[in-house]
Design a protein around this nucleic acid. Structure first.
Lengths: 238, 238
DNA sequence: CGACCGTTTGATAGTGCTCAATTCAAGTGG
DNA sequence: CCACTTGAATTGAGCACTATCAAACGGTCG
């Protein structure tokens, strides 16, 4: 059997509370299930889509982790986000019918393939789905604004603290430990996302470790003092 | 007559080719016109909506210019964009039913008020409208990615060059001169948008002027050598 | 005309970058 | 099983770029 064409069912998916189905009723959920016709597995380093690819579908991460990045004509690139289970990839492609960024798996991963014309169809029939989809896009815009704030007005320590708290919170929402993080991305990728060089990321990790805020062993990071991170991000608060 | 309730008609609006109506047929256009029930005028410095306000409508800029900004608990803020005629404000509010940023008029301005539930209603009836709205949100996400790239990987000169080219291009699309810009925002607001301090913005303007790339007289900026700006943004190209 | 806000310019300090060497972890092949 | 390779992470030294602090200038509007 073609592994790229596995029958799926949102109804039974453990990500119901995080992914597209959030807040849908039984009947709506079944309609959504029908929409998702296939899954796709990717190995670490494999691309899901690339800048310039024709846009046809959105992707919901089932397990694993991705990064998205945009690139300039002269070779520089910028990581625009890291996506984990239940999060949606591909919204960038709607505007021009072509993807405007690359999505790459940071570890062996799987996504649900959601043909976009079906999202549109279903949105017209089910107002709940429509609203939900609109909210999803809006939240992506708000998230991007948060990254702009980070890139435009925070210093290196604040950026890394904000990054760690964000990852921690998203892991907790998925039932994982919020204090013990196994980072799936390199220092360079973190640096690109945070607008820093990899050496600065590494140095800042070491500094946090010296201060007793973190325990860092390569990609295994333990948050020993989450409040200290919170203070860094929000100096005046508390 | 209440000036906040002026009857409008997209059909006759000079922004048809830039604003929401892009690509709509005659009948669709009329439906859109019905949706826009009022306009609102704002004086320079006046707020259109603020962080925390209940979200109910989108706004299309008719004339004038706005800035949007997000702010941290500790008082820092970040300008996330400048909006000119034909551009849409308020997409940030859909996700949580509350606005997550402030929108402020940079000069005397006017917006069309577009109740959001009507956008949703009309999207269900007219697939063209639906697709158009989806594209608009997606393009906003792509725009944000561009800003992230700017903030994360460009130096001061590149940032200002990219900013000027962007403004210039948008002015041209509206039939204005693309070489003679009257900036409606302060150096501090430009700096906030570009992740720089106002002094750095001012110095970079002066540097560009010394190099013959610009002529700068306060807020009147003439682009003498657009190619030089292009080179700065895209070093390897050309 | 004066007050005020925004802008320009200068001097200095600091943060993060660059370049370079070293260490570490995990494979790979003899 | 161990030497070797490779990619990633850490650490150091010096430097570049931008921020900070401060002063002066200019335009605008009461």
């Amino acid at each position: 059997m073609d592994p790229s064409l596995i029958k799926v069912a949102c109804v039974n998916c453990s990500l119901r509370e995080l992914c597209l189905p959030v807040g849908l009723q039984e009947g709506e959920l079944e309609k959504l299930s029908e929409m998702v016709k296939s899954r796709r597995r990717l190995k670490r380093g494999e691309g899901l889509f690339s800048n310039g690819d024709t846009f046809a579908a959105l992707y919901a991460v089932r397990f694993g982790m991705f990064k998205t990045r945009v690139n300039t004509a002269d070779g520089r690139d910028q990581v625009t986000g890291f996506q984990m289970a239940g999060e949606i990839l591909g919204l960038d492609g709607i505007g021009t019918d072509h993807h405007t960024c690359d999505a790459v798996a940071l570890e062996d991963s799987e996504v649900c393939v959601i043909p976009f014309d079906q999202v549109a169809d279903l949105s017209r029939t089910f107002p709940v789905m429509q609203l939900h989809f609109h909210k999803m896009m809006s939240r992506e815009i708000v998230r991007d604004h948060g990254v702009m704030l980070l890139l435009g007005s925070m210093r290196a320590e604040e950026r890394l603290a904000a990054f760690l708290l964000n990852i921690s919170q998203r892991l907790r929402a998925r039932g994982f430990s919020s204090s013990e993080l196994v980072l799936r991305m390199t220092r360079e990728e973190i640096g690109s996302y945070l607008g820093l060089k990899l050496e600065t990321v590494s140095r800042t990790f070491s500094k946090f470790q010296d201060e007793g805020i973190l325990s860092v062993q390569q990609r295994l990071v333990q948050i020993l003092d989450p409040q200290a991170l919170q203070h860094l991000v929000n100096p005046e608060q508390c």
